[in-house]
Amino acid sequence: MSVEIRGFEELADELDRLQDRTEAVDGETAVSFAELFPEDFMQTHTEFESIRQFFEASPWTVESEADFDRIPGEQFDAYVDEHTGFNSWEAMLSAAAREWIGRELAA
């Protein structure tokens, strides 16, 4: 008696592709705010249409990484808590990172 498995090559190819994508997102990867916080993420989880609007509505001017780094953490967490579905920047960033990884693995 023998059993024929159909689609095994396609499954193996898909697993190879997934492994390649996993290796591509493993480690440190530079990702822009626009990539990390696409409009659909912002519209679902915040009061804003985009990450740009999120920062423009804030009391801080954020035009560079240095500007962002100067924002007081507790004040920024309070801003995030008030205007998003997250209670802190860390929670918002973690959710965005999980979704970004999911998008990258599905690509």
Rank of each mutant, 00 (worst) to 15 (best):
Q75L: 03
D81A: 09
G73L: 04
A95P: 01
F54H: 00
R103Y: 05
Q19N: 15
F55L: 09
D69N: 15
R52Q: 15
Q53S: 13
R52G: 08
R21K: 05
M92V: 13
E65I: 03
T29A: 11
F76E: 02
L18V: 13
E39K: 10
A57S: 08
V62Q: 01
E47Q: 15
P59G: 04
E23L: 15
F54R: 00
A34F: 09
T29P: 01
M42L: 11
E39G: 05
E99V: 02
G73K: 12
F48I: 02
E90C: 03
D16G: 07
W89V: 04
A95Y: 05
E65N: 13
E56C: 06
M1H: 08
F55Y: 13
R21M: 03
L18A: 10
L93R: 14
L36F: 09
N87E: 07
E47S: 15
A12D: 04
F54I: 02
L11K: 08
S32F: 06
S94I: 02
A30P: 02
S64W: 12
S94W: 01
E49H: 12
I101P: 01
E47T: 14
A34E: 15
R17V: 10
D69M: 12
L15T: 08
I71E: 04
W60F: 03
D16Y: 07
V62S: 07
R70C: 07
E99M: 11
E104G: 00
I71W: 09
S50M: 09
L36H: 10
A96F: 00
F41N: 13
T22F: 12
Q19V: 14
E63H: 14
E10W: 06
L36P: 07
F37W: 02
S50G: 12
G27S: 00
S64G: 09
R103W: 05
E82N: 12
I71Q: 08
Y79W: 15
I101N: 00
E35A: 15
E74P: 05
F48N: 02
T22A: 10
